[in-house]
Each structure stands twice: as structure tokens, then as C-alpha cells.
Design a protein around this nucleic acid. Sequence first.
RNA 1: CGGGGUGUAGCUCAGCCUGGCUAGAGCGCCAGCUUUGGGAGCUGGAUGUCGCAGGUUCGAAUCCUGUCACCCCGACCA
Length: 589
Amino acid sequence: MRWSKTFIPTLKEVPADAEIPSHKLMLRAGLIRQLMAGAYTYLPLGLRALKKAEAIVREEMDAAGAVEIFMPALTPIELYERTNRLEAFGNVLIKFEVKRGDRRVPMALGPTHEEVVTDLVSRHISSYRQLPLTLYQIQTKFRNEERPRFGVLRTSEFLMKDAYSFSTNLEQLNQAYDAMYKAYCRIFSRCGLEYVPVEAESGPIGGDASHEFMIPAANGEDTILRCESCGYGANVERADTGRKRSSTTTAEADQKPKTELATPNAGSIDAVCKMLKCKPHKMIKTLIFKADGKTVAVLIRGDHEANENKIRRALGATSIELADEATIRAATNAPTGFAGPVGIQCEIIADHDIPLIANAVTGANKADAHFVNVNLGRDYDLAKDESGAWKTFDLRNAAADDPCPKCAGKLGLVHGIEVGHVFKLGTKYTVALDATFLDEKEQRHPIIMGCYGIGVNRIIAGLAETKHDENGMIWPLSVAPYSVILISLNANDAAVTKVADEYYDALQKAGVDVLYDDRDQRPGFKFKDADLIGLPLRVVVGGKGLGEGKVEIKWRTDAEATKVDVTAGVQTTLELLEKRRAEDAAKLP
RNA sequence: CGGGGUGUAGCUCAGCCUGGCUAGAGCGCCAGCUUUGGGAGCUGGAUGUCGCAGGUUCGAAUCCUGUCACCCCGACCA
């Protein structure tokens, strides 16, 4: 493509609306333009990159045995009613009615397609002989983002690859899941992304039933914990802390006398700390939960965050929720905000860090009062195991510097962009939509599902966010809009133009996707633009070089160009590209 | 939806507080000449419902009220 014939509106100045690198760069390099908040037009360069990423996703999906289909973006509301997701999606779902004669048909733009595929499968799959099956599509999804942001990273309309596996048993599900997991690793590697698969919260299914693929980036919306030593990674919701039970309690000599202090209207950690001039990590936060109907007090250190999934698992409950005011009063004889372990009228479980708090501050189970200098063993008890040690649990979100659960290392907080998610769904949708199969013994079972998503736009945005320097983008060969930028340094110099034109023809004939900057612009201008759009290989034909019979070739990442004989330039370009492709392929998992 | 910010030329922004002559600059754009290895120089030129609506005033980009859009922080995010 000749630059003069296409549409690449580069920007010298940074648009005022853009804040993060990917947004700034994608605008400046002429990849995208905003139509409204959360909706972007892809310009030729951006579209080409998006299509290349899409092609990689498609190739790997096909190779992993998934089968492509294409479902409508228009979906009937009724399907979401049947799975109870109309309410769950709430405002995220873009809903509307269309008129058909005297009827009004309610529909929604698909935010994801579990309902639609499951409905499809329920109508046509009835035997175990037809399974397993994995279907996928690459399609525009619609979600009304209350607050779109970060350019193309969080929009109301985006390209997503969504795959769904259907299995008769867990073994088949695990095979499908593993195949997708491996395909994802290859996809993100091929796209030149640094990525980290992290364990994600998987709800009641438990186990390692869900992984998110994250691109570590300072501006990522998600927080993950990662062990630098062994590579263990998990999102905040899910991350285990490697903390051990500790039976260490405060030595009797160090235990100060327990005292009740008045704390009028101070029912929060902050308010109590302010009033009593203490620090949150000296406090015991006492949360009252209803676990399958039973009241339980959960003890967490004041500066930590309770993790409901961990609490639910520790209690062996199927569902838990924070207790209502009446339940709290029954257990504590006090309004919300003054609960504590001393004399509480219900079961207590505690986080590992609780026994380590010496002379703790906690609610007195009495309105407007807190105790100071509360100590485990003297003032309250926990259950003990066979060896007589206090039973404690991992009940809170992991934090930076917690020990790694898999090795001797420490966890660190990292921000990440979620670019993919694989999930063992189970039978939620197949039960709701009656997608069943008959097994060998003529028994009917719901089909077991998995779902697997990739945000294709986020692959591009993630690359822009993480692969650039102060001059512009740095594309990997695999996703670059064009592999080569060919620059003629003086369009008015007939000799230069002649050679550049010949190169352009030769490279095109050789099947190279080349962008030919044939514009009548000064050299500096063209170099700056070339760096900005960041195509991998730059070939320069200029009067000065031509005088010595040379052209210049340079990778975007090289500091200096290499001079090559005019006669050898095309061949060298082809060889360099071939070599780079082979190197990239060799790195794949 | 709560908090904060911004809307003036294609882009970046000044002018607004303290109302006053024909609304400005740089970049970009058009024409001509010069120039041609890291966002050129000179000369000339085009481009604005000052987000929109209403109000105050002799007079509004500027003050007031309303409204819309966009950005940031938070809440939300199958």
C-alpha cells in the first residue's frame, strides 16, 4: 500500500482526552478514532492489526479442535429470563424493543452468548455420541459500560472470541479446558504479548476451574498477586496466602488488663482508630455472617479485607452472606459496629493473623463500647485441633509481601489487563435451558459446559500499552499492520523514486505486506511517522545512500540502520523477515 | 450514580477572574518560491453558530441559570 493512497492520520500532538500510553499511541499512530465514549472506529492501520490478531486466534482455535460458528448479535430477552441473567446483567445489557406489526419484540444486543449457544446445542445434541464439542465465534459484543475508559481497553462494543465446550463428563471437560488453555498460551505468545495465566475465582465449582490471562501493565484495571520466585499467580479474589497456622499468642507477662472504653457512634475501624488513637492492624474486625442459615462470627485483622469465598470454603457452606441487623443484635446484644469475640453468642472462626495481635482492640458487644487489650486464650477462645493448637484459617484477600503458597517466595501486587479468561462452567446454563444428553445407559444428564473468552481489541491495546518507546509503537511481526515500511527519502528525486518503486513492486510480488511511504515530505517528517506507527522493518531509499549504491535496512528496535547494496536490498529484506518469523515460531510453547 | 475537571479553528491551547473596538497563537491546511537524511524557511491565504438554550446588560467567549458532551477518581463490570 502506498501511504499517499491510504488513510493514516498521524498526530504530532497528544490528544487532550487520552491519558494512558495505549490510548495516546493508538490515536497518534492513526489506528483508531473515537466516535463517542466507549465506541471507536478502527482506521486502516488499526483494522489490519485487529484482523491479524483475529486470524491468529482463529488458527489456534481451529488447531485446538474448536469449530467456528457465527451467532447473531441480536438476542431475544426471553433467553436471559430463563437463565435469570436479565437481572444479573442489569444495566450492562443493552435492551430495546422493535415493532413488528402490532407486536413489540423485546431484544438485547448480546453481551456474551452462553444462552444462545446452549439453546442451539439443546435443540440438536441429544446423545453422548455427539459429544464432546467445542464451538466458537469471533463477534462484536455489546455491554453498556457505565463508565467507559482507558481508550479501547474498556468500551461498550468490542470484538470478542468466545468459545463454549460441551462435555458428557469431567474428564472431557478437563480435556477441552486444557486444550483451550494451551491454545491461549500459543495465541498470546504468537501475538508477542507478555502474559501471566492466573488462578481466578471460580465460584462454587471450586478447584482450578478458572484462569484469567493477564498482561502485566501499570494501567491494568485488575490487581493480581504474583510470586517472583515460582511464577504462581492469582487474582486478588482467589490468591491463597502461604501463611501457616500460628499458635503463638501473647506471653502472659505482656498481656495488659482488658479495659472497656466508651466509643460513642464509632462503629467503623476508622472511627474507632481515630477516637482511641490506635492503628487498624491492632484491631480485630468481627464480621457476622449467615452461613447456610447458621450465624458465624469471622475474625479478621482490622487492616485486612475479608474474602467471602475463602470464608465460605472454610465453613464448608454452600452460600454465605453478611448478617442482617437483627441477627447481629441476637449474637452481640449490640447494633452493627460493636461486635467482638469476647462473650459473643455464636460460633467463631479466625484468620491466621488473629492470634498474633497482642492486646487487640475490638468491639465489646455493647452499644458504643470497645475493649482494648483483648488477648486470645485469656479473653476469648477459638476451636482447637487434635494437637491442642488454635484452629485458624486463610480468610482474607492476599496482600503484598504475603508468603507464596507454592514456594518460599513472597507475593507481590501487579496490575494487569485481562485479555483472556477460561472457565469451567458446569451445568448452570444447560440445566436452565434444558440441554441434556442420553448416556450409554439411556440416562439423561445435563451437558457440562466450559466457556473461554478472548478480548481481541485488548490484544492490540495491550501491545500498544506494553510495546512502545518514546517515539511510538513497536509491533511484533505477527500482528503488525504491515511488516515493512519502505521510505523514499525524496519523492522529487527521480533516481530515488525509481529504485523505491522497484523495491515496492518486488516486495509485493514476494508476498510481503509493505507500506510504501511515497509522500512528498521531508525526511525527518517521514522518519518520525515511521517510528510512530512502529512497523517492524524499515527500508530506506535515499539520495545519499544511492550515491554509494546502498539502501538502509533497520528493525524498529535497532539503534542504527545497516547499509546494503541496492541490488541485494530486496533479498536481504526477505531473509530478515524469514529469519525473524522462524525465531518467533521457535519461542512458542 | 457520587466527587472533580474541560468544552474557543482540523490538533494543542491562550483570552474568561476584573464584560467593551474586527476573537488570538503555534502546528496543520491551500498557493507560490526556496529547501530535501530526524516533524524545514519565507511570502500570501482560507477556516470559528466561542458546546447548546435561556437570562442579566447599552454591550456576553467572559457574569447567572439550565442543559448536553467528553475526560479523570470512586461505585459497578456475565
